[in-house]
Amino acid sequence: MTALSLKDLDISYGDTQITHKVSLDIAEGESFALVGESGSGKSTVLKAIAGLAPEWTGEICVLGKARGHGVDRGFSRICQMVFQDPYGSLHPRKTVDATLGEALTIHGIGDRSARVEEVMASVGLDRKFRFRFPHQLSGGQRQRVAIARALMLKPKILLLDEPTSALDVSVQAEILNLLKRLRREQNLTFLMVTHNLPVVSFLCDRLAVMRHGRIVEVAGVDELKRGDLKEPYSRELMQISAAHAS
């Protein structure tokens, strides 16, 4: 079944049109990557899906249901987003417990304490962190909190916006392993934005290359591993990536 489908999605910020006719189909349980340089519109696509960029035309369907332009609680339960910068995405004056519990309060879900502990355990955060503030945590721990927050409502789909680019390589490895395990255990669907092709190779099944707001190529990860991308721009990205991995 299709978890997420975009049809002819045009997203604008004011008078500027950011994306042009973006169409994608992502199957349930699939891990899909959007790659491209800054300004290519890849993060904007995630924002539109999450409801943070409401000026769009076209169609966004999640698990067969079309998404409206406004805030949609039912939608929040199936689709959640993890942001790039764990230093900026957590409320500095809320404890981990408050951050994680907020979604439960909004949705009127009880059993708060047990659910917070359960999610913390699943992202590998020790119980002792529960009443700490973000500034008392390391970057990797904060990103675990951000992932835990996204998982509070037991969503089916996670939108990941460069989830590891602000982290050290060794911490990046921990978070990537965590995401891979969570996807397996909870049968999640991932849509990840990144400019790091090796990360795509580790975590994803398929990828779409974006440039100037358009998708220029969709390929399987095997083609990426073999270096078989067809578009000149995709090959350019691959070469830059290969040049630094000696």
């Binding site: 060794s170 490895a173 990537l176 392993n177 790091n196 090796p198 190779s201 990426l224 691959m238 990536s241």
Partner: peptide, 14 residues
């Protein structure tokens, strides 16, 4: 711990 373009490992060493 750095993933590679032709990654085959199922889990990255930490």
């Amino acid at each position: 711990s750095i993933p590679r373009l032709d990654e085959t490992r199922d889990e990255l060493p930490v």
